[in-house]
Amino acid sequence: MRPGVGISPGNVPVYYGGGHLKAVERRVKVAEVVLRWVIFGLGVLGAALVSSDTQVREIFSLEKKAKFTDMKALVFLVIANGIAAGYSLIQGVRCVVSMIKGSVLFNKALAWAIFSCDQVMAYTTLAAVAAAAQSAVLGEFGQSELQWMKICDLYGKFCTQVGEGLVSSFVVSLSMVSLSGLSAFNLFRLYGNNKGKCSGSW
């Protein structure tokens, strides 16, 4: 019988593949590090683009200034991006330290905490992007039934920069969703047949 092959109760060969599992886990960890730093970078970029966005127009001899605080959805987007960036920075540092030390600072309680936080951040960033996107659509196309004008016809630069921030935020939300899947893998593998072999090393 080849090493690493067992017989299941139904007499079907089962390959446990410890080495292969470790290689998969290493790729998952590298992907986690990359995603966390992408979220940090784009989260900061998205928050900076939206929060620094202003445009002044003169309408009927009156100066009107558009800023992100005029739309609560954009305020929510900036806050969500800031929280996601800060959280990902902390988790990214944890991952890098683990890689340098060659061990995982990991147990079931910590795995559950990371999984739960990743889930919350994924839902929060998705909700923020959805709310901001809805406001952006109204600003771009207006709502004739309610006599809401197309704000972007007046504040083109403002809307363009908000759009750039939305794109960055959208990538952040997709990355957070992917991370929640990776954290689920990291959590539930601790309950598998290889939990004793793989929970302490990369």
Rank of each mutant, 00 (worst) to 15 (best):
G6L: 08
A84I: 00
C95R: 12
T125C: 08
S173P: 00
V104D: 09
L105C: 08
K72Q: 08
R2S: 10
V33K: 14
I7H: 10
T69Y: 05
Q147M: 11
Q134V: 05
F68W: 00
V56A: 15
D153A: 09
F106S: 15
V12G: 05
S201D: 15
V30L: 14
Y16N: 04
A73V: 04
C117S: 13
F106H: 12
T160H: 11
A130N: 13
L146Y: 12
L45W: 04
V28N: 15
A127R: 04
I100T: 12
G181L: 04
L190A: 07
V38E: 09
F115H: 07
L21I: 07
K29R: 13
A113L: 11
A47M: 05
W112G: 04
L77I: 08
W148C: 08
P3L: 05
V78R: 03
G86N: 06
W148R: 12
W37T: 10
T124R: 08
S88Q: 04
A80E: 00
S88E: 06
G41K: 01
A136N: 01
Y123M: 15
V50K: 03
L138Q: 03
G43A: 00
Q55I: 00
N11D: 14
V12N: 09
E63D: 11
K29S: 14
M176R: 05
S98H: 05
W148I: 15
L179W: 02
M149Q: 13
S61K: 09
V137E: 09
M71N: 12
A128E: 00
S173K: 01
V177I: 14
F141L: 13
E140Y: 04
A136I: 02
K157P: 02
F158G: 00
K195I: 03
E25T: 12
K64L: 07
V120L: 12
V104A: 14
S103I: 10
V33H: 11
D153Y: 05
T124F: 01
K65L: 11
C95G: 15
V14Y: 06
V171H: 02
I7S: 14
R57P: 03
W37H: 01
M1E: 01
M176L: 02
L154S: 12
K101L: 15
L45S: 03
L35A: 11
S201E: 15
G18P: 09
Q55L: 02
P9H: 06
M149K: 10
E164Y: 09
G4R: 07
Q134M: 11
C159S: 01
V162P: 05
F106V: 11
V167F: 03
M176P: 00
R36T: 08
E58H: 02
V172L: 06
I79S: 11
D53A: 12
V162D: 04
V14S: 03
G6A: 13
V137F: 06
L45N: 01
E164C: 06
L77N: 13
